Simulated scan of single mutants.
Amino acid sequence: MELLHRLCQIHAPSGNEVLMKEFLLHYVQENQASWKVKPQLVHGKGFQDCLMLVFGQPRTVIFAHMDSIGFMVRYGKQLIRIGGPVAEAGYKLVGEDSQGKIECTVVENEETGALSYDFDREIERGTELVFKCDYRETEETVQSCYLDNRLGVWNALQVAETLENGIIAFGCWEETGGGSVGYLAKYIHETYGVTQALISDITWVTEGVQAGQGVAISLRDSLIPRRSFVQKIIKIAQEANIPHQVEVESAGGSDGKELHYGPIPWDWCFIGAPEDHVHSPNELVHKKDIQAMVDLYKVLMQKL
């Protein structure tokens, strides 16, 4: 899983996904010759830092967000969250400004909870800082910062190797509330007539969704996708004997929100491996769930 390790180290907090887009573009160009179908690459003017891969005659699109949570330097030594990272005193952050590379430490005010950093100089305001990657792999698990959503991106790239008909859309800004899926969805619908979407993202380990028990298929988070579409997905997973768990939550969200609130009649479903220690430097996912995620996406892209 060296590719996943590399993905987890790329600096791409919400709003600055360009390095991830460039990495993916290079990766596709280097590897597509060995894929079953060579995709059309859609990017550039009108798509900001997004990237789409179009295979054959698509019926379904996989959305995978490229961005991560992180922090932005305010004034003095203040830190502001990008998205919802867990912040504990002592966490290591990395980044770069015009004066050079940065590796600093999170400091939290015990009384106010305000965040700042400890570094040997003042970091330029607006600089983005992300968790320092400490990638750990065992026979059963993978642990690192940013498995959400580098694992979702990795999953899409595994599917791309054998995909004959479909679209993979790598989007931006998901961790801060969306911003790109709306116009990607409009382009996809108007150009290819596609109205089915799978959200390749990572969910939570909870009392009802356990690590090592299979990929999670979400019946709801803060939103409720169309039941008949989700039931079709569950039936396909059952017939293929792919380990899966049905998720029912009252909160949370994903790129599915922009599809749900838009004017196009999208059917969408969040399908992802569950992780523990969410939005921390120590996100943990079981390899059985990763395998089940890849297996289910490959089957769904054939059968939906």
Results as ranks from 00 to 15, higher is better:
69 I>S: 05
232 K>L: 06
255 D>P: 02
127 T>Y: 07
49 D>L: 00
148 D>S: 01
203 T>K: 08
124 E>N: 15
179 G>I: 00
274 P>S: 14
251 A>D: 11
11 H>V: 14
262 G>W: 04
257 K>E: 03
14 S>K: 02
233 I>W: 04
115 L>R: 08
213 Q>T: 11
50 C>V: 07
168 I>H: 07
100 G>E: 15
289 D>K: 03
27 Y>Q: 10
123 I>P: 01
246 V>W: 00
260 H>L: 01
16 N>W: 15
68 S>I: 02
146 Y>K: 01
41 L>S: 04
174 E>W: 04
78 Q>F: 10
85 P>R: 08
293 M>K: 08
102 I>P: 05
269 C>W: 03
35 W>K: 05
126 G>K: 13
63 F>S: 03
59 R>A: 14
146 Y>R: 06
100 G>S: 11
181 V>D: 03
34 S>N: 13
219 L>E: 09
300 L>S: 09
20 M>V: 06
44 G>C: 08
189 H>M: 14
76 G>Y: 15
144 S>Q: 00
166 G>E: 02
115 L>H: 10
264 I>S: 06
97 D>R: 10
177 G>M: 07
10 I>L: 08
279 H>M: 06
190 E>S: 08
50 C>M: 08
250 S>C: 09
244 H>Y: 14
115 L>A: 10
161 E>T: 15
102 I>C: 12
48 Q>N: 12
289 D>H: 10
169 A>D: 04
25 L>P: 02
24 L>H: 00
106 V>K: 01
192 Y>D: 05
198 L>P: 06
264 I>M: 08
143 Q>K: 13
174 E>Q: 05
268 W>L: 03
189 H>A: 11
5 H>D: 14
78 Q>M: 11
60 T>N: 07
156 A>W: 01
38 K>V: 07
147 L>Y: 00
50 C>Y: 01
74 R>I: 13
82 I>K: 01
79 L>H: 06
51 L>R: 03
35 W>D: 03
132 K>Y: 05
280 S>Q: 10
174 E>S: 01
233 I>Y: 01
125 R>D: 13
170 F>V: 04
17 E>V: 06
222 S>E: 15
99 Q>W: 14
227 R>E: 09
20 M>D: 01
283 E>D: 12
19 L>D: 15
273 A>R: 06
24 L>R: 05
207 E>D: 12
278 V>D: 03
217 I>L: 07
220 R>G: 05
30 E>D: 14
37 V>A: 09
212 G>M: 08
45 K>C: 06
80 I>Q: 13
292 A>P: 12
89 A>D: 11
153 V>L: 02
46 G>Q: 13
172 C>F: 02
279 H>Q: 09
205 V>G: 00
192 Y>T: 09
134 D>G: 13
28 V>R: 07
75 Y>S: 14
38 K>M: 14
99 Q>K: 14
286 H>C: 06
160 A>C: 04
99 Q>H: 12
68 S>K: 02
43 H>F: 11
75 Y>N: 15
159 V>C: 05
268 W>A: 00
187 Y>N: 09
173 W>F: 14
81 R>C: 12
299 V>A: 11
236 I>V: 12
44 G>L: 04
196 Q>I: 04
275 E>V: 10
217 I>A: 02
144 S>M: 02
107 V>N: 11
24 L>C: 04
240 A>E: 13
251 A>Q: 11
93 L>A: 10
71 F>M: 09
62 I>C: 07
30 E>Y: 07
145 C>K: 10
234 I>W: 03
135 Y>D: 03
267 D>S: 10
227 R>S: 08
194 V>C: 11
